[in-house]
Design a protein around this nucleic acid. Sequence first.
DNA 1: TGAATATATGAACAAGTGCTCATACGATAA
DNA 2: TTATCGTATGAGCACTTGTTCATATATTCA
Lengths: 122, 122
Amino acid sequence: MEQEQDLDLCCQEEQVHTGALERVRELMPRDETLYDLAELFKIFGDSTRVKMLYALLEGELCVCDLASLMEVSQSAVSHQLRVLKASKLVKFRREGRTVYYSLADEHVLSILSQGMEHIMEE
Amino acid sequence: MEQEQDLDLCCQEEQVHTGALERVRELMPRDETLYDLAELFKIFGDSTRVKMLYALLEGELCVCDLASLMEVSQSAVSHQLRVLKASKLVKFRREGRTVYYSLADEHVLSILSQGMEHIMEE
DNA sequence: TGAATATATGAACAAGTGCTCATACGATAA
DNA sequence: TTATCGTATGAGCACTTGTTCATATATTCA
């Protein structure tokens, strides 16, 4: 009870922002959605995975190709591909004993590009 | 030596993809850039921070407002704001003892939107 | 000055993450 | 079948991360 009150009151005496708070509360996506969104960005938040996604922008590559590019073990790449698959960021096709991975859709490029723009300025 | 060879050779006998690999190597951003990019996405990869950024899309809010919205402690919000500041995703202005935070630029919206598009389909 | 309020920060800890190592699986060829 | 190659997976571990708690800093007001 007390906690809930503390959460609703802003800075105890100043109710100045309660209007803004209500508006924000209405416009914000559901908690579950925001959680999923964070989960997605978490995937992009690892340099090995970002590197893999960038490599796949040029076209499909097999696990061994990726391992070579990343300069990490085949096992590590395989583990990360599993993560990327689970998030539907990559898809794959099997050809003999080789498995080729490629980007699942064009959102990957969009997201990478927007991020790149931010870090590039200044 | 042997390791380096293993890294350059793809799947031992199949040199089929070496052409593709060289092309990818040329077109890929520098390792340092990819690392910075991952660091940026790491910021978005936490539900508390994503929620904070979404809230700030509507306009500036003080620390206490944000704590109220996030339903976490003021201390936690303050720690996260520090992270967001360091990445130049938010800026702030002081008014008396209150500090108002707002988004640093429009890239935040772009990045959030692209991510949202991805999780929304299917 | 001293009290109160808003925010910031350091330490500590539980939970999560990405790697390596060993091994298993799946497909091909002898 | 057996051997080999490409890939996948489970266990274990070092490292990171986000929170809480306590406290410090900064601003206002009496």
